[in-house]
Amino acid sequence: MERDDTAVVGELVCPAGTPASLRTAVDAGADAVYCGFQNATNARNFPGLNFTPEEMKEAVAYAHARGAKVLLAANTFPPAGQTDLWKRAVDEATAFGIDAIIVADIGVAQYIHSQHPQQRIHLSVQAGAPSIEAIKYYCEEFGVKRVVLPRILTIPEISDLKRQIPCEIECFVFGNHGLMAEGRCSLTNYATGLSTNMDGVCSPAQDVHYEEDQDKNLTTKLGIYTIDCFSCTQSPGYPTICKGRYLTPRKEEGYYAFEEPISLNLARLLPELIKAGVNAFKIEGRQRSKSYVRDVVSSWRHAIDSVMAGDEVDLENLLALTEGGKQTQGAYATKRWR
């Protein structure tokens, strides 16, 4: 198996939904920032978010001038006969000097590999590739240099995987818990008619409704579906179907059928992740504000630097930024997290 001896160690990969957030992330110590264009080519195609081509060009220049990388998220799946948008995104980003393109679709990967053979490719978590065989296929066929792993593996599983694949590993360490089969989730499509994987919208805002009564009880809805109800003292999460509470004849009260509103925080597992061979640590949250980016990126910069220096870290101070005011180590610590 051929290995890349120049593989990075301890890279901090941070989100940016706007140019201001990107500059904030770079200034706060990000090694790399991932972002997308204002269209369906990326999986955070939210209103008012993302970059125009001109903004992307300026963002790359800003980051490069400060020693940081910019990664383009082109991680959705083009519908049949509609690949031009994805090809244009790849062509433009490559022309701007983007450092890597994060892809999920094999057609997009093949286009980059054939048209821009020098362009570095990262495999998105949206590709849903957790196995040795799948990852090796992407590496061999498209020259993928890094895989972003789904958040369903334990650290021993990651360590085992790392020994058998010829590319870098990037793991989510903070933000959305994200246990769904990514790239294959159709819950939003079922509820709204729009696809997370092809339109880039999970719970599109146009279909989200919040209703608060006189007593401050909050009901969150997606389309015609009630996601959850919260009393005035309870912390709500994002209005996604996967984080809703549902009634069934077998349960006395509403229960979380898929996952809970809770955020991943792997600060205490950083030493083990490094030991397992994880090359890059990813923070989720392109939909979040630059305030979130500033606080989370600076905290994680400090944490990674401390661990690399042999010191201990604890990022409990980020609890206020977590979904539902709760955090977990998820499957990384144990597959019995609930």
Binding site: A205, V208, Y210, C232, S235, S291, A320, E323
Partner: peptide
């Protein structure tokens, strides 16, 4: 301040046209 964190903590509420 982060709007999402304020929403999670109930310090901020939104009604009407979410988009």
């Amino acid at each position: 301040l982060d709007g999402d964190a304020l929403f999670f903590s109930r310090a901020l509420s939104v009604q009407g046209d979410t988009e």
